[in-house]
Design a protein around this nucleic acid. Sequence first.
DNA 1: AACATAATTTAGATTTGTCTAAATAATTTT
DNA 2: AAAATTATTTAGACAAATCTAAATTATGTT
Lengths: 220, 220
Amino acid sequence: MNYSVSEENYLKTIFHLQKKEGTVTTNELAAELKTRPASVTDMMKKLKTKKLLHYQPYQGFRLTADGSKVALGIIRRHRLWEYFLAEKLNFTWDEVHEVAEELEHVSNKKLIDKLDAYLGYPKNDPHGDPIPDASGKIEQGKKIRLQDAPLQIPCRVAGVRNQSPGMLELLAHKKIRIGTILEIRQKFDFDHSLEVKTGKQQIITISRQLAENLLVTHED
Amino acid sequence: MNYSVSEENYLKTIFHLQKKEGTVTTNELAAELKTRPASVTDMMKKLKTKKLLHYQPYQGFRLTADGSKVALGIIRRHRLWEYFLAEKLNFTWDEVHEVAEELEHVSNKKLIDKLDAYLGYPKNDPHGDPIPDASGKIEQGKKIRLQDAPLQIPCRVAGVRNQSPGMLELLAHKKIRIGTILEIRQKFDFDHSLEVKTGKQQIITISRQLAENLLVTHED
DNA sequence: AACATAATTTAGATTTGTCTAAATAATTTT
DNA sequence: AAAATTATTTAGACAAATCTAAATTATGTT
């Protein structure tokens, strides 16, 4: 029921990494945690015996339902503290992460729930990331412009900023609608156009104007 | 410059214990920290090499100036968090200590100084104990008559008003001296006598006359 | 002062989380 | 498919903080 700082850092990091790709590898995790692959393997065995992880040697790993629940608890604490630091203590948005990395390991549930209430049950931390509620539920990820989405990472169309007829006509023509999966292959500096792969594996080009008005999310 | 949770707990506890008696013994500290005397000896060696402790085998120990400074920093963090928990998060005074025991080990200085400012530079925590300022200075607790001390809150005998032989005889008989911890259990209106628990868990009765002449402090 | 008792320290073991170096498995290249 | 490369795991070691049991030092009593 209670986990060490080290275990918590592994769980949290696995949670974040497995969002991008379904399964997490030893080297990936070692790089992220600034430790050695051998150390990762050791910890994987431990987390497996605690039933927080699906893991077969050489096959990568992902969290079990229990593991995800623990990870979401840690992320909840982290993001609530970030909100507190920015909102109440006047830290700037780029300072909060480091401090929250320490505070997140204080795992008293009553403390966190009272902090949540005190802050007015905020939905997002200062970076816009959603804060899981007391039961571990997490809201849809922040909508960002396709323009600002990272390369090579699939995202989902969640809305449009500009709903002019011309925009909608263009979307229809390119067969893009809410829910369509897009992955940026390349960004061209010259005209800021994007080469994008669709969920149906077609390669299309999206202009700067369109990319500024398409809102996407990374959450699954 | 940075200390482990374990080291911090030792330093803090030594600081508190050496207020009562000038020097702290191995068994005393082991009892307070719920560990074994052998473990205490191990840690004493370590703290000595870090120049936080005066220590010669078999001679007891006390903090160096550096050690006290570190301890005061920890106490500052503890008491500021206690104040925050009681004042902002609506914890009751008897709940705050346990939670602050965890929060006190987050040692980011900027965090603590900003928290201090946010709380309005409080002078005392919810138990009445003084909060060291950013430079480690701690205000001397005010001496009040035992008569005027609050119920159920341990205080320390800091002086006597009347030093007549009869008074001293009575104090000796009741085994009360400077440094003795007293906690008022009940006040009786009829004769203004007090039922008091001593640091050694004995229940004694203190008359109005005595209670008016015993000066106590809440400072730890 | 000598003895008995209590307090403290030492010696050696254990757990957690880490490491390096070597062995093994999987993947990629030729 | 064999060889080369890369990823992962195993084996064995180490530091921190703890423990038990035994040895040592200090203290209190007679």
